[in-house]
Amino acid sequence: MPETSAADPLRSADGGFVPVSAWSGGFADPDRIDGAIVLSVDGQVFLDEDYGDLVDRLWAYILTMLEEPGEKDSVEAFFPGRPLRLAFRRVGGGRLPASVGR
């Protein structure tokens, strides 16, 4: 089984990222939470702070997309605030490779 690591730091007012567990501020707009998803599988980083966006919406997109491949061979969506495409493609063996790009 692959070793997976995930975190979702939030973007602070100074533009840096703060782990959710250390976040002490509120949100100017709770419907637009800026942050990042940091995701690695077997030591290979797939997403990091360079892909920062509206993290609450991005998680919702990912979860919705993970439900859809049972019905389709592939699914894709764009990051909520950036022209980056996130895609999942169903392959044999229960694998679901993902890609990020323009």
Score class of each variant (00 low, 15 high):
Met1Arg: 12
Pro2Met: 02
Thr4Ser: 10
Ser5Cys: 09
Ser5Pro: 06
Ser5Ala: 13
Ala6Cys: 14
Ala7Gly: 15
Ala7Arg: 12
Asp8Gln: 10
Leu10Ile: 12
Arg11Ser: 11
Arg11Gly: 06
Asp14Arg: 02
Asp14Gln: 03
Gly15Thr: 04
Gly16Lys: 10
Gly16Glu: 07
Gly16Ala: 10
Phe17Gly: 00
Phe17Thr: 01
Pro19Cys: 05
Ala22Gly: 09
Trp23Cys: 07
Ser24Arg: 15
Ser24Val: 11
Gly25His: 11
Gly26Arg: 02
Asp29Ala: 06
Asp29Phe: 05
Asp29His: 05
Pro30Asn: 13
Arg32Trp: 10
Arg32Met: 13
Arg32His: 15
Ile33His: 06
Ile33Phe: 07
Gly35Gln: 00
Gly35Asp: 00
Gly35Ser: 01
Gly35Trp: 00
Ile37Gly: 00
Ile37His: 00
Ser40Met: 06
Ser40Arg: 05
Ser40Gly: 05
Val41Tyr: 08
Asp42Trp: 02
Gly43Glu: 00
Gly43Ala: 01
Gln44Ala: 14
Leu47Phe: 02
Glu49Trp: 04
Glu49Gly: 05
Asp50Cys: 14
Gly52Cys: 05
Gly52Asp: 06
Val55Ala: 03
Val55Thr: 02
Asp56Gln: 08
Arg57Ser: 11
Leu58Glu: 05
Ala60Asn: 11
Ile62Tyr: 04
Leu63Gly: 13
Thr64Arg: 13
Thr64Asn: 13
Met65His: 08
Met65Ile: 10
Leu66Cys: 15
Leu66Ala: 15
Glu68Gln: 11
Glu68His: 08
Pro69Val: 03
Gly70Leu: 11
Glu71Thr: 10
Ser74Tyr: 08
Val75Arg: 00
Glu76Cys: 10
Ala77Val: 09
Ala77Thr: 07
Phe79His: 07
Gly81His: 09
Arg82Leu: 15
Arg82Met: 14
Pro83Gln: 10
Leu84Pro: 05
Leu84Met: 14
Arg85Glu: 07
Leu86Ile: 06
Leu86Ser: 00
Phe88His: 01
Arg89Gly: 09
Arg90Tyr: 02
Val91Trp: 03
Gly92Ala: 15
Gly94Ala: 02
Arg95Ile: 10
Leu96Asn: 04
Ala98Cys: 13
Ser99His: 09
Ser99Leu: 08
Gly101Pro: 01
Gly101Gln: 01
Gly101Ser: 01
Gly101Asn: 03
Arg102Lys: 11
